[in-house]
Amino acid sequence: MESIDQTTIEKLKAEIEALKSTSKRLESSRKDQLSIAIISGDMDKIMAAMIIALAAAAMDTKVKLFFSFWAIGALRDPAKHPKGKNFISKMFGWMLPKGVDHLKLSKFNMCGMGPWIMKKLMNQQNVLSLREMLKEADELGVEITVCEMTMNLMGFKKEEFIDYPHLRFAGAATFVAEAGESSMQWMI
């Protein structure tokens, strides 16, 4: 066997130490966590985000979803009727989808025919519905944050959202701070 001289060993040792400190720094700055900012209110896009969120949560990755703009309508509970809205808020509330069962498709919507066919196909092929996905997400501890600013902008009230135990209301800084800790940050 060839002998390795002392300086090579020292060099390697130094390199290992450097790598150790780098990996330690990376480990502490990036958690096994997935942050998704969901802005789109389309059924297909929210579905994609939810499926990936569920898979990640099942794989023990912490999942944090941030619902903003058009996506907020998906979290409304159609059975709840909040009081004290002004005219514009009422109009927004009337025009935007009331919950996951009333979302449009980004393509092939065809005045509601598309989503109807899609739901039928999903049912036939045993794909979870969005409603079921939310239930699974809840059981897996997926956190959902509603963007408070866009919620106010569209005139939604906290009382009209679904009963989701891990639901909270916060702003962009919360998303930025949490996405910064996450090893995966996406937006749809």
Binding site: I51, A58, M59
Partner: peptide, 13 residues
């Protein structure tokens, strides 16, 4: 067998 992706993973979990 009655669920599509990610159903089996959720069931296993």
């Amino acid at each position: 067998r009655g669920t599509a992706c990610p159903g089996p993973l959720l069931a296993a979990k």
